[in-house]
Simulated scan of single mutants.
Amino acid sequence: MTKKWAFVSDFDGTISKKDFYWIVIESYYPEGEELYKQWKNGEMKDIEFLSTVFQATELSVEELNALIHKIPLDEGVFPFIDAVKQAGGDFIILSAGTDYYIHELIRYYDLPTIPVFSNRGSYENGGIQIYLDHSDPFYSERYGIDKKTVIEALQKDYEFVFYYGDSEPDSHPARSADRMFAKDKLVSILDEQNVGYEQAETFADVHERLKSEGWV
């Protein structure tokens, strides 16, 4: 039986105010700035760039988790998650980063159970090791996880699926979601691709809009 609705959100740059890879680069891996340029020039795949940066630290698990706790979040996400759940919807995180730091933050902030679709990661040799399963139905050679395919799978379980994102990887699920919210770089990308969206810079913006419409 299909459920009524789900609100799916990207993590880095959407729930968080800053991508975790920048926190790692600025704190421990200055060489990552040149790597970032290579990635943006198309010389590296997204998952290659992230895997290299996340394995560049030499930290204890406690030090790594303390660094994760410094990821600044959009404060509006907390009341929004509560509102979605109270209204009978499901809040879901869909990230092309890794589930390691997402699960750590869910634990740190003592959030309710939140489904997370992301690249599997674990602490190993002073950093985060990302594990890719090429047989996974959601596998993507470029991103590790195919966000568009995840959204299409969720649409079999829900009558209506929202999506909210901020950057290029989010342009793919934008084509499949029933309703799309976009911010930052994603706005111009979707304009260029002629893909429909609603602009929202914060979760407070989204919350206010859905509240006025009776969703929450």
Rank of each mutant, 00 (worst) to 15 (best):
E213K: 11
A66H: 13
L94D: 02
Y139W: 15
E62Y: 08
A204F: 11
V216A: 04
I102M: 08
F203E: 09
I114H: 10
G126Q: 12
D136L: 06
W39Q: 07
K4E: 15
K40G: 00
F54Y: 14
Q199W: 12
Y100F: 14
A83W: 07
I68M: 12
K147D: 07
V77Y: 00
G32K: 13
A6W: 00
P72M: 09
Y139S: 04
S176I: 15
N119P: 03
M44W: 15
R120D: 14
F20W: 15
Q155K: 15
H134L: 02
D110P: 00
Q199E: 15
V116K: 06
G126K: 04
Q55L: 11
I25Q: 03
D46P: 00
F160G: 00
F78C: 04
Y101F: 15
K17C: 03
L210M: 13
G97V: 07
T98H: 08
F7Q: 08
G144A: 02
Y197E: 11
W22P: 00
K45C: 00
E48T: 11
K37W: 11
L186M: 02
M180F: 03
V216N: 04
L105F: 05
H172R: 09
Q55G: 05
W22K: 07
Y158H: 10
E75R: 02
E152A: 14
Y163E: 06
Y29D: 09
G97C: 07
L111Q: 08
S176K: 13
E168D: 13
S140N: 12
L105H: 02
E141H: 10
Y29E: 05
S9K: 09
S140V: 12
F203S: 04
A96Q: 11
K17D: 07
E31W: 06
R175F: 01
D46F: 09
I114V: 12
E26V: 03
D74E: 14
I130Y: 01
Q86K: 15
L186Y: 03
I25R: 03
I102Q: 07
S27N: 12
G88L: 10
L64M: 12
S118V: 05
I130W: 14
L210N: 02
D19N: 13
P115A: 08
I130S: 07
D178M: 06
A200D: 06
M180T: 14
S167L: 05
I151F: 01
D74S: 05
Y139K: 03
I93A: 10
V216R: 00
W22I: 03
I71N: 04
F160H: 12
F49N: 11
V187L: 05
E75P: 00
V8M: 10
V150M: 10
G88D: 13
A153T: 14
A182S: 10
K211C: 02
I68K: 13
E213G: 05
F162R: 05
I114W: 04
S9L: 06
A204M: 06
Q55A: 15
F20V: 12
E124Q: 08
S167G: 09
G42P: 06
D191I: 12
K183F: 02
Q155M: 12
E192K: 08
G126M: 09
D99R: 06
F181S: 03
N194E: 13
V195E: 11
G13I: 00
K4P: 01
S188T: 15
E62W: 04
K185N: 05
S135G: 01
